[in-house]
Each structure stands twice: as structure tokens, then as C-alpha cells.
Simulated scan of single mutants.
Amino acid sequence: MAAPDIRALVGGLNNVYVGVIARQDFVEARGTRDLAEILGSDEPVRVLMKPVGSSAVPVAEMIFESLGTSVDDIKSNGGEVTQVDTGQIADQMRNGAADLYIDTMIKGHPAITEVALTTDVTFLDLPQAALDLLTSNGLTEGSYGPWFEGQEGETVGANLGTVLIASAALDEETAYQVTKAIIENAEALKSSHGAWAAFDPAAAMTPENTGVPLHPGAQRYYEEAGLM
């Protein structure tokens, strides 16, 4: 859904990758770790993800589309797409009720940490076809980890990023002051919130980190600070 009335204040706050986890026994039975082969097969697959409202859901749907399938196709092929709240995810994977789990990958993510510690899993790279579609929709290609048990090295995913946004109707001075407060206190914020450890204030206004136009108040701050 288009949202023409939002503007960015600060982008690139932290990296939020979307990735795919598979049960190890599932990939061994299939004989492949290639997500394109798994989703393109005539064999049914059971996919687990969060309910609508999670940022991972539209990304998962684009991954399906890029690989020639959809939620309806997966179901019509005898598979399942189950959407549950965070608290149910580890049980679903541990009990063998799902083969694949699609979610946002953040270092220390509690649900993924529990899944990885209690179920024998492996982390699958996103295929290039999926990355091409996702990057054309504003995500960036990259690698994450190794952060979790069972993740043997870096895994290829798509980065949603985190952006502080505001209504275009927000007054310019408020947007200016909020932006100024975050940029000029970046080190304190990074030290108190581990997920922001890689935040680079000098890149907070770049299009690849914001995804939408800057608010005029934010732009004024960046220009006055010599960052633009």
C-alpha cells in the first residue's frame, strides 16, 4: 500500500534482515538447501511465519512470487502456510509442525534464538531471483551472522533496515529537533541499545537508508550539520 504522506527523519538505525530457517531433517530428506528448488518442487512444504502485520510477511510473499509460487500455490500443492504469534514459533518448529520458518533476523532475536537452541536447524541463503525482486522494492542485499546455533557462517538475506519516520504534516521545527537529538546523541544511544551498534549518523540521511524522502526539518538539520 502506498504511503505518500510519510517522511524520513533518521535512517539506517539498525539492520533487519529477512531470512529463512529450515529444519535440518527436512533439508536432509529433500537433499538440497536451495530454497528455489524446495519451493519449486512438487513435494509439499510447510511454511511458518508471523501473522499479517509483521514486516516479514510481505517480504515472504515477494520471495514466493520471485520463485514462481504463492501462499495459495503452496497450499494447493498439499503444503501449509501457518501464521502464529511469536510465542508459538519455537514450539511449532520443535514439534516438527513446520519445515521452513521465515522471519526478521536480528542478532539476539529471542524467538530465533530459542528455535536454534531447541531444534536442529539450518539457515538458507535467499536465491538471487528473490534478492532481485526484493532490492527492486527497496530492500538491500546483504549477509547476516553467524548469530545463532546452527548458523555455520554468514547467510545471504535482504535487509529491511530501520527508519524513524514522521508524517509529512509534522512541523519543521519538531522534525529538526528530533533529528538533531538522535544524531548528536548517537554514541550514547548505540551504547545503551545493542541493536544500534552499527548505526552510522553520517549515513542516516542517504536514500538507501531512508527509502522515502526526508522531512524538510530533518533535511535542514543535516545540511546545517554539514552532513549533506
Rank of each mutant, 00 (worst) to 15 (best):
V115I: 15
V84R: 04
A111L: 03
H109V: 05
A60P: 10
S66A: 15
T86E: 12
I106W: 06
I63Q: 02
T118A: 11
S70D: 09
Y101N: 00
A90T: 08
D132M: 01
S66L: 07
S55E: 08
T119A: 00
D73F: 04
E61F: 15
K107A: 15
A56L: 03
Y101A: 01
L67H: 13
L126Y: 04
K75E: 12
E61T: 14
L117P: 01
E114Y: 05
T119F: 04
P127D: 02
D132G: 02
L131D: 04
V71W: 14
V59F: 05
A90C: 10
K75Q: 09
L117W: 09
A116L: 04
M105A: 13
S54Q: 01
G87I: 00
A130L: 02
Q128C: 02
L117V: 02
I89Y: 02
T82I: 10
K75M: 10
A111S: 13
G68S: 09
V115P: 11
P127Q: 06
T104C: 14
A97G: 10
F64W: 12
P127N: 04
G96V: 05
S76P: 05
M105S: 06
Q88D: 04
P110Y: 09
D99C: 01
G87F: 00
A111Q: 09
V84Q: 02
E80Q: 15
P58F: 10
A60T: 11
P110E: 08
H109P: 08
F64D: 07
E65H: 12
E61S: 13
T113D: 12
E80K: 14
A97M: 14
V81C: 01
K107W: 11
I89K: 01
G68H: 12
N95P: 03
S76M: 14
A98D: 04
A97N: 15
V71H: 12
I106A: 06
V84P: 02
L126C: 00
T104Y: 03
K107N: 14
G79C: 09
L126M: 03
K75S: 06
D125R: 13
V71E: 15
P110D: 08
G87L: 01
D99V: 01
I102L: 09
A129H: 05
R94Q: 13
E80P: 07
A130F: 08
A116W: 05
D125C: 10
A60H: 07
A97S: 14
I74E: 05
T113N: 10
I112H: 07
V59M: 10
F64P: 07
E61C: 14
A130M: 07
P110T: 09
D132Q: 09
I89L: 09
A90D: 05
T122E: 13
F123S: 07
A56S: 13
K107G: 08
D72P: 00
Q92E: 05
V121P: 00
D125W: 11
D72F: 10
K107M: 14
I112R: 06
D73N: 11
L126T: 02
T82Q: 03
G68I: 11
A116G: 03
A56V: 01
A130I: 07
L126G: 02
A60C: 12
D120F: 06
A98S: 06
L100N: 10
T86P: 05
A56W: 05
A130T: 08
D132R: 08
M62Q: 15
L67K: 11
